[in-house]
Computed example of a mutant assay.
Amino acid sequence: MVGTFTPDRADPYAEGSAIVDALPSGLGRLETTEGAGHCPRDQFPDLQVSMDRAR
């Protein structure tokens, strides 16, 4: 889970994609959270829980 508003990252989506791509196939997926910052799990905990349950 990566926030789309992360001022300390040039391209949060690209960084998240690189992490998921480095994992074994099928182990991870990238979810973006519009308007969230560096720690979207803290800003939108309900969204994190719903994504965890959807796995």
Rank of each mutant, 00 (worst) to 15 (best):
A10F: 06
D11E: 13
D11M: 08
D11H: 06
D11A: 12
P12F: 06
P12I: 00
P12W: 01
Y13F: 12
Y13N: 02
Y13M: 05
E15S: 11
G16Q: 07
G16K: 10
G16Y: 08
G16P: 13
G16A: 08
A22R: 08
A22N: 07
A22W: 03
L23N: 03
L23W: 10
S25E: 11
S25R: 07
S25K: 09
S25F: 01
S25M: 02
L27T: 06
G28I: 05
G28R: 01
G28A: 15
R29L: 00
R29A: 09
E31F: 05
E31S: 05
E31M: 04
T32V: 13
T32Q: 13
T33H: 06
T33L: 12
T33G: 02
E34C: 08
G35D: 10
G35N: 07
H38V: 01
H38A: 03
H38E: 02
C39V: 10
C39E: 05
C39Y: 13
C39R: 10
P40Q: 02
P40T: 05
P40V: 02
R41Q: 15
R41T: 14
D42G: 14
Q43C: 07
Q43G: 13
F44G: 00
F44C: 12
P45H: 14
D46Y: 08
D46F: 03
D46K: 14
D46T: 11
L47M: 13
L47T: 15
